[in-house]
Amino acid sequence: MRLEPPRRALDYAPLVFPAVMLTVFFVVPFGIMVMVSFFQRQPAGFYTPAFVFASYERFLTAFFGGVLGFSLGLAALVALICVVIGFPFTYELARARRSVQVVWLVALLSILSLSEVVIGFAWSTLLSRTAGISNLLVWLGLMEKPTALTPNFGAVLTGMVYQALPYTVLVLYPAMARLDPTLMEASRTLGAPPLKAFLTVVVPALRNTILATFIMVFVFALGSYLLPQLLGRPQHWTLSVLITDQAIYQSNMPFAAAMAVFLVLVTLALVGLSLLVGRKEIAA
């Protein structure tokens, strides 16, 4: 079949449905959010249509800058850990027997179906003093007495990595399954031990996939707002937690919208930047 370039307006018809969906479910809501972020907040609740920068002014302080920085750093760290763990895991998974793959993929999908609430409660129990894994360590004689392993940064990180890892694996899987297995073999016959072959061939051959996965997991992790509350201390609360507080508990929609818009813009800027760097690398 030859692909003809579109000539008449009708040739663009297949694009109409996705375009409408994108407009209805992304452009319009985002537009409304941007609009609301400039509205005037009424201290008694609600807001009135206006064009003021008050919400943005409130956001541009060292305090919120710190929270934003922490949120971005946390999301980046989660994405990094997920890729570092998920990449070799997916590599092995894609090479495993069919039945083994199916079992793993079903398990990962079922984790993906768990809500953040369930994951948060499960981990806060697992890391608790009274019912958590420290009891197991005590029983094994590895620890003196059970201790709470939450709340702290490590607990937040663990929960978020747990939540994002299945996502990471599923994003990596198709590219990994398509990767020509003879690349690794060629590398081995050319004198590379298995680990070196993996690092010098599989990793660089899939660097675009890695970058794309990192970005997706990063954005995914940015949206996490329950795990930092359940597993962390207040200093580990992300911007998403504060957005939720403003939107749900303070009814301050303009401020919540302004924070969300800022978060989206910063995220887009970072994603754009990393894509740019990625493209330059490939051109070089």
Binding site: R188, L190, A197, P204, A205
Partner: peptide, 21 residues
Amino acid sequence: VPAHKRNFGMVFQSLALFPHL
């Protein structure tokens, strides 16, 4: 002796040229 220590050159049917190099 593992493959990487045999020093045999091999050409694969797929050629297996490294796409990133």
